[in-house]
Amino acid sequence: MIQLVLAAAVLTVAASVYGAIGLRWRRRARIRREILELVAALDFEPYHAAALKSGATEAAAAELLLGGYLDIDGEGAVLLTERGRAFGRTPVHPVPAALLEAVRRHDPEPVSMGWIDCYDEEYRARRGTYRSERDAQLPEIPRMPDGEGRQPLACCACVGVVLLLVFWVVAAMLLVMARPHGVLEWVTATGAALGLAALWFAEGANKGVGARTACDDPLGDRLRDERHPAVAALDEQQRLHVLGSVEDRSRWRGVDRVVDGDGDEDDEWDDDWWPDAYHYRAADNDDEPDGGAGDTAAR
């Protein structure tokens, strides 16, 4: 008769455990469906979508480059054009307008977009204000329950796992020790063994539920394939120049020096870089009198 008792107990516990797993699956699947439907219905403004991917500066630089406000050389140095120096001409959108004003504050000395993005406080503040205003318009997106901040429930779950393990060990020992006799006992013993096997794989089934219903970064998945129209309109060379300028976050290029982000200066000329970066200053050297060269030759 012990086999019958064991079978009833084991199958009851197994049904309870898998019932809880099934309820968890159903709840998580419902929340996941709600999250994905809500995110899919969102209509992002292009710069907001870029900001959510930390690409607002790149998008603004692309728009200013296409609009003829600035030029970016192969080393990532940003140079204002005549249109960019005309203060009456400013983009309508606040993000490229803030970036253009930041470049104007450094004119006529070139600067990288990455340096502005990291160290220009006024630009960072205006970009942050735009991001905050747009984020406030987003609906509240449900979060998948992960157990964080619910210590009592987590403690109860740990106690339940320990009790289940103890029950499994005791039931297995009793099933091995009790030799079945007759067809009924063999059938009940087989049922108890199947129940114990099911309990053994319950933890894997629970992890499978978490993996199949995971919804870690729905916004990132939604925005991953979206590109800002200005970025998409760049040709290959322009794209490389913009990326190089945005990724150069540690240096500010002065007239005759390269300055690290922490303020250390390097007074040595970079002969491979500066002629391209300061091509518009070449005209200044043409205004020097010829007498200076003659005096030098005479000496």
Rank of each mutant, 00 (worst) to 15 (best):
V111I: 14
M173C: 13
W25P: 01
R251W: 15
W25I: 00
L42V: 13
P91H: 09
P108V: 01
V39Q: 10
V39Y: 08
D295R: 14
D217T: 11
E140H: 12
G74D: 07
W115M: 14
T190G: 09
G84Q: 11
A298N: 12
E121N: 09
I35W: 10
R143N: 10
L100P: 04
V161E: 05
P110G: 01
L138A: 12
S112I: 03
G76A: 01
L42F: 14
V95A: 07
H106D: 02
L223M: 12
L23F: 08
K53E: 13
I116K: 09
D146P: 12
D262T: 02
A7R: 10
L174D: 07
V92K: 09
W25D: 12
A102C: 00
L219G: 11
L234V: 11
A298I: 05
G114W: 08
Q3G: 03
R127A: 12
T190K: 00
L70S: 03
R249S: 09
R28K: 13
T81M: 10
I35E: 05
L70K: 05
G128W: 06
A192G: 08
A230K: 06
I21S: 05
W168I: 07
R126S: 11
L223C: 13
L175T: 08
R27W: 05
R27H: 07
V111S: 02
R85D: 13
A198H: 04
E121M: 08
A20W: 03
I2M: 08
W186P: 00
V242N: 07
V161P: 00
W200L: 14
D272C: 08
H279G: 15
K53R: 15
P96A: 02
A136I: 01
Y278R: 06
L38P: 07
W186N: 02
W252A: 14
C156W: 05
A193K: 00
T129N: 09
A189S: 07
L219K: 10
R224Q: 14
L80G: 01
A202W: 04
R83N: 04
P229N: 02
M177D: 13
L36I: 06
C156P: 00
W168S: 15
E265R: 14
A136S: 10
N285F: 04
T190R: 04
L243G: 09
H181Y: 04
V111G: 06
Y280S: 12
T129D: 13
R27L: 12
A102N: 00
V103Q: 03
V258S: 14
V258E: 11
L11A: 11
E37K: 13
A298V: 03
E226D: 05
E203F: 10
G114D: 01
D264Y: 10
V161T: 06
R249E: 14
L23H: 05
L52M: 15
L11F: 03
V39K: 04
R222M: 07
R32L: 04
R24W: 03
L6H: 05
E37N: 13
R26V: 01
H106A: 08
R224T: 06
A172H: 08
D73K: 04
